[in-house]
Design a protein around this nucleic acid. Structure first.
Lengths: 189, 189
DNA sequence: CAATCCCGTTGACAATTGTCAAGGAATCAA
DNA sequence: TTGATTCCTTGACAATTGTCAACGGGATTG
């Protein structure tokens, strides 16, 4: 699994950093089953996860007990509760595997150490932060500016792989719609 | 105006960095009138702005020509199109003054230079990025998980200052509701 | 001061979306 | 295979929200 992370890091930085093997040594491989939680609301996020294989859902539970999905993450992406991870404070979100997953996880202490001692690692982290922030900004704008139908169109156009990979129910929870509404909107396309 | 930025930086870092005066020298004071745009869709964002005084709206325009507000920023906050600023790519958003404003702006080149040569500046930027990302994540979750009424409650509870500072029309555009709907929801509180 | 404009409000109505219930297809385990 | 479960779909109905139009107050301008 570490090979995939090596290629990921090299790809982002454009070259392999000197201390790459040191960085890689701080990651611990793990497997998770479908339905396993990596984090629950109220818990402190101890790890950041690099996804080698599988699909991860980040969501909250609303007042009526329904899941509301903030984001899905797949191969070659990172997932964690960034703010809670950095500040070691309780999370407001759940992180769950919706497919069997192969992951590489790094602890808070190791992450801090790598940021402080390997400049390329800090640089990579910054880039990932910027891209993640940008994606989330974009998501806010689609949620407030687009109708349900246009949000579904947007999802199909911009996330074709997830479309085939996710059950309709989860797509609905990502778009802020009920499963029934998504069924009906699909008929209009 | 620079004094306010000095205190802001010192406050975030817990102490004044050695090169503080160098950092401050890279900021250029400016004033903007109500209605002035700092950035328009399609333009490349040349500056990051620190707000000394005033209120800034970041928004997009939807298919029907309506403004849809992503965020408001006020005194002691930073505003820019982060991704476009860092990558010097065209923006999808508008940035507009909704009050007369006093600003300190830093160019892309100076920002890069400060990040590279003043570690405290890079650290501060990272912290701001993390907090901004976290706020935006929170915003996605309120938009998808809460009803219109609960979003209005949330806004009143969490943004009491903005409540008194913003016209109702702009609050509506922030919550993803029509002005009429906000009027009616207000009557329920 | 009067005229104008912007904004918030209200009403009537339409469109969108959610909820509840039921049925059927697909999946999974025994 | 059988039974159980989950998920998608559909229908009926209710709730929410948007649109359009009109009214009136408050601010601004001439």
């Amino acid at each position: 699994m570490v090979d995939r992370l090596r290629q990921h890091i090299t790809g982002i930085l454009g070259r392999a950093p000197e201390n790459l093997s040191l960085v890689l040594s701080r990651f611990e491989p793990m497997r998770a089953k479908r339905g396993d939680h990596l984090l629950q609301e109220g818990d402190v996020c101890r790890y950041a996860y690099f996804i080698v294989e599988g699909c991860i859902q980040v969501y909250v539970i609303d007042a009526r007990g329904h899941e509301s999905t903030r984001e899905f993450y797949v191969e070659d992406q990172w997932v964690t509760d960034i703010f809670g991870f950095q500040n070691q404070t309780p999370s407001t979100e759940y992180i769950k595997c919706i497919e069997p997953a192969g992951l590489l996880r790094i602890s808070h202490a190791s992450f801090q150490e790598m940021c402080a001692t390997v400049p390329e690692f800090a640089s990579m982290y910054r880039q990932i932060l910027e891209v993640s922030y940008n994606n989330t900004v974009y998501r806010v704008n689609t949620l407030t500016a687009l109708s349900g139908l246009d949000r579904l169109r947007w999802f199909y156009d911009h996330k074709p792989r997830l479309r085939n990979r996710l059950p309709s129910r989860l797509i609905a929870s990502y778009l802020g719609l009920s499963p029934e509404t998504v069924t009906r909107l699909k008929a209009k396309l």
